[in-house]
């Protein structure tokens, strides 16, 4: 099967979730992998995409912010999928990947399997697994049609290099018609913020954190291990931190390799957004808090004492 992967990139090269996805696609039996990139692709990016499994790289010319626009990139993506004769088109389940794949798949009369956590090919058919009902159940889907579409959550796979051949780079034209919507400008709301959807480690706080200032304590812990800052709905509703950080059913669903929940009781609404994390640590004053039934490691204690202690321990450990 031929697979086309939507490759996201920035000034530092391919995004980690893109590398994961390319590698995953290349590891599937009898599959050949192409990549589609919005905007210009230089030699080093093409070489990097090649190292993770792409044998051909399609890219679409862009103007201004059009490389960020699902409306502008849907036509070039469709054309690249046709040129590559793709049986499966994959995106990372990111704000850009999911938006673009939704547009493009609907244009081809199909729709996509969004937010997948597992993907495999069985007897020539694409199968995926994804959380439903806010993570309280997991469904398995069979994707049909000439071309299938799936968006896969970051952190679902390993990103290891697999080959070292320079892929062929092809420009696709697509229609550059008026899309009706233009990204006028881009603002960095919280400079340097690590996105919880992309992070491999998350330190999250709940209502017990008590104030926006106190979230600074969690920020220090997060910084000590390069983690993103997460929050429960209660903490967001109290105004301690912006909604960009909310983990749970009405926030983001995340699956980092390490999740540290501080002062979070563990409601269904929160737990369903983080239960797929590889290792879960809970810190709570109440030893009966439901979060402990979801955690791998627990400390029953005051977060205002435990969190600074943990920051010291982590710093010490990572210096060694």
């Amino acid at each position: 099967m031929r697979i086309l992967v939507i490759a996201e990139h920035d000034a530092n090269g391919a995004k980690r979730h893109t590398r994961e996805l390319l590698r995953k696609a290349a590891s599937l039996d009898d599959c050949e992998v192409g990549a589609f990139a919005a905007g210009p692709v230089d030699e080093s990016l093409a070489e990097e995409l090649g190292r993770f499994g792409a044998t051909k790289v399609y890219h679409a010319p862009s103007e201004g912010n059009s490389c960020r626009s699902s409306l502008a990139m849907a036509a070039p993506l469709r054309d690249a999928a046709a040129a590559w004769e793709a049986g499966l088109v994959l995106a990372s389940a990111t704000p850009f990947g999911q938006d673009l794949l939704a547009r493009a798949s609907m244009r081809l009369g199909a729709g996509m399997a969004s937010d997948c956590t597992a993907l495999w090919i069985d007897d020539g058919a694409v199968r995926v697994r994804r959380p439903v009902y806010g993570g309280t159940a997991t469904e398995e889907l069979l994707l049909g049609g000439c071309t299938s579409f799936a968006a896969v959550r970051p952190n679902a796979f390993e990103a290891t290099e697999c080959r070292a051949r320079q892929p062929e780079v092809v420009e696709v034209e697509g229609e550059t018609s008026d899309t009706g919507a233009v990204i006028e400008r881009v603002e960095e709301a919280e400079p340097g913020m690590v996105d919880i959807g992309e992070a491999t480690r998350i330190v999250a706080g709940g209502r017990a954190v008590g104030s926006a200032e106190n979230f600074g304590l969690l920020g220090e812990l997060a910084q000590s291990i390069g983690a993103a800052l997460g929050a429960s709905r209660a903490a967001v509703d109290e105004g301690y931190i912006s909604h960009d950080h909310q983990v749970g059913q009405t926030g983001r669903v995340v699956a980092p390799s390490l999740y540290i929940a501080c002062g979070i009781s563990g409601s269904i609404q929160h737990v369903s957004g983080m239960r797929d994390s590889k290792v879960i640590v809970a810190i709570n004053t109440d030893p009966e808090a439901p979060i402990f039934t979801r955690a791998d490691y627990g400390i029953a204690g005051d977060l205002f004492e435990v969190v600074p202690a943990l920051t010291r321990s982590f710093r010490k450990l990572l210096q060694e």
Binding site: P131, E139, L142, R294, A295, Y297, A300
Partner: peptide, 22 residues
């Protein structure tokens, strides 16, 4: 049109092995 996405199964998420309190 014929559905291109068909659910073939539904399960409860895996249960964790239990917490180790420190």
């Amino acid at each position: 049109s014929a559905p291109t996405i068909v659910r073939s199964g539904l399960s409860e998420p895996p249960v964790r092995g239990g917490v180790r309190m420190i």
